[in-house]
Simulated assay, not measured.
Amino acid sequence: MSDSSPPPVALRTYMAIRMGVIGVIAALGFAVWREIANSADGCVQRSLSAYYYTAVRPVFVGALLIIGFAMIVMWGKTWLEDAVLNLAGLLLTVVALVPTLDANYCSLPKAVRGQVPDSETKRINDTDLINANAEAVARSFSALLVVVALILLFIAIAALLAYRSAGTRPPTTHSVIAYAVTWVLAASALVVYSVLFLDADDPDSVFNHQVHGWSANIAVGLIVVAVILAAREKAGGADPADKKWVRWYGFVAGAMIFFAILIKGGDAVGLFSSWDWVDAHATFLVEAVLIAFIGIFWIIQTIDRRKEGAPSY
């Protein structure tokens, strides 16, 4: 190992965090499987997020928080990859703290599930769910907003002090832009979420009905971008061995896009209308497939970058 290589303790910490993400994804999959296996008739919820309202809740919330934390603290190889992963990690944290309203599927009689419109099958209406979880959501989400605001303030002050004390060796324009983009994206997300949170007491607000779904969709989209950026970084490398990683990253990105379009797009146009189970569980299927591919991506990148240090920007 050359003198420029990261110290063993840094590499071990890096690997521990990355392996931890893989572990919690596996734990979430096992917990959901156990919940399905232990249900009276093997019922599967219509979305992975709906398991928030089951005994899987601690694993579901914990897994998303850990994955989000890891994406934030792990450095990307480029400033753009780092910004994308930071924002994705923040959004996944929001997904963990603001639950979906799709909670009633497995409480319905088996003969009714998926046979009539949602508006006629809701035994637990949205307002009841919102009110039942309002206090917990308010406490956790307000804490998130405060912590993110304090972190952004600390980063801004530290960056200013570092810049003023740099003397004759100021940071490069590229590095300043890199940190500024990440900070601005996180600050913008903080402002948007803070404004939406002002209406949290309104059962019909965007915060209660849209924040969970949109945060999850954007986070997955950002992760796909991160996979593509990883492939692009390897494609520009001089080592012929990098080409295999381009193929692996390309496969994962392509598979995530393909299955998202196939399942959700097919569901939107009625492709699965003759398959009752698939039609009712399109969201669950696409979420399960995408989180599995996120795990595959994380494994591939862990192996790919196992001996590399922090980026140079």
Rank of each mutant, 00 (worst) to 15 (best):
R139Y: 06
G295A: 06
Q45P: 05
A268R: 13
V84N: 00
I299V: 15
W277T: 02
D202C: 06
A310P: 13
A162I: 03
H174L: 06
G250C: 04
F197S: 01
W298S: 11
T100P: 13
L150R: 05
L229F: 04
D204L: 12
T283V: 14
K307V: 07
G213T: 02
A111E: 15
V220E: 08
L152Y: 06
A156K: 03
F293N: 11
A178V: 12
I151C: 02
V9W: 15
N133M: 08
F272G: 09
M19C: 14
I155F: 11
P109M: 03
T173A: 15
G265H: 11
I130Q: 13
V286C: 00
R139L: 11
A83N: 14
V95G: 01
E81V: 08
R18P: 13
A187D: 00
A231G: 05
G237I: 01
P6Y: 06
V94A: 08
G266P: 01
S165T: 15
N104T: 09
E120Q: 07
I25Y: 05
D128L: 14
G266Y: 10
V59F: 00
I257L: 15
W248F: 15
I300P: 10
S47A: 15
V246T: 01
L160S: 12
A83T: 15
D199G: 09
T182C: 09
R113K: 12
I291W: 08
T172Q: 06
G167C: 08
